[in-house]
């Protein structure tokens, strides 16, 4: 697969690589225990020992941002994984077989897509209960339709190409044709959607946690931190800023990546 290295792609790759490095390091080491409170060091402004300051409990904000970014990343990745896996199956089968099942599933898809996804996520959370794993499940379910749609249209297009007819004429079974021949060929089209989906998942997780239905205290998550920080916006602006910038970097990195890929494949 060729990705021409345009500016968007390069910038996105650098930002994403930086964030991934920070997150990976944060999984094994943070300057302080992200949950360690210290009454004496509450609301410190950025200083040499706490580069991003401390919060209202005296916890090190840098450590919490790193850990929160990790949590947000894992949730977003898991959400995309669920949406993508199910989307591949649903979109693959409907695109491949077509017919009435395709009609029914895609109308259902349209219906789901017609609702604001945060609203639906809140409904699902109300059903499942809040918490990290339920957020993943709820968002993952909501992401299925958009992936299914992309997969379906691309599978339907590939299906009409001669190499698929050739495989059928060799006596290959449907599953072999779909998974071995067609699916690898839709990856180029899928990658930008994955990047965009990841972004939406980051934002959705942040929103949910901001609304206090996502990651629960004391665990850090970027949305959760924004929520806590808003009470101290004037007294400790670095708190909200740190969490906000981390979200922006995550989203920007993947946004630029998808832009870079989309531009390339869109032109092809």
């Amino acid at each position: 697969m060729k990705i021409k290295h345009n500016k968007n792609f390069t910038a996105g790759a650098i930002i994403t690589a930086f964030m991934l490095a920070v997150i990976l390091i944060g999984m094994v080491w943070t300057p302080y225990d992200p949950n360690a409170m210290s009454g004496a060091e509450r609301m410190l402004a950025p200083c040499p020992s706490h580069p991003l300051g401390t919060d209202n409990f005296g916890r090190d904000i840098l450590s919490r941002v790193v850990e929160g970014a990790g949590a947000t990343f894992v949730i977003a990745a898991a959400t995309v994984a669920i949406g993508l896996a199910a989307g591949l199956v649903v979109g693959g089968l409907t695109g491949y077989y077509g017919g009435w099942l395709d009609e029914v599933v895609m109308r259902f898809n349209d219906a789901v897509a017609a609702f604001p996804s945060i609203l639906l996520a809140l409904v699902l959370i109300a059903l499942f209960g809040s918490g990290k794993y339920n957020i993943i499940l709820a968002l993952g379910l909501l992401f299925i339709p958009s992936f299914a749609r992309v997969v379906r249209s691309e599978v339907a297009r590939q299906k009409s190409l001669d190499y698929v007819a050739g495989a059928r004429l060799m006596g290959a079974g449907d599953m072999r044709i779909l998974f071995l021949h067609i699916l690898p060929n839709i990856i180029p089209v899928l990658l930008p959607s994955v990047a965009i989906g990841f972004n939406n998942a980051v934002l959705a997780e942040a929103s949910m946690s901001y609304l206090s239905v996502g990651v629960q205290p004391p665990d850090a998550s970027l949305g959760r931190m924004l929520n806590e920080a808003q009470g101290y916006l004037l007294t400790a602006p670095w708190y909200a800023l740190s969490a906000g910038v981390a979200i922006i970097l995550l989203v920007l990195g993947f946004g630029l990546l998808s832009e870079g890929m989309g531009g390339e494949y869109g032109a092809a």
Partner: peptide, 24 residues
């Protein structure tokens, strides 16, 4: 039919550009 397709009857299409899987 699948047991016969490919094994006893082979097919060659007009367009060699699209009749092979580009990623295999």
């Amino acid at each position: 039919l699948r047991a016969v397709q490919g094994k006893d009857i082979g097919v060659v299409f007009q367009e060699p550009m699209t009749s092979l899987n580009p990623l295999m």
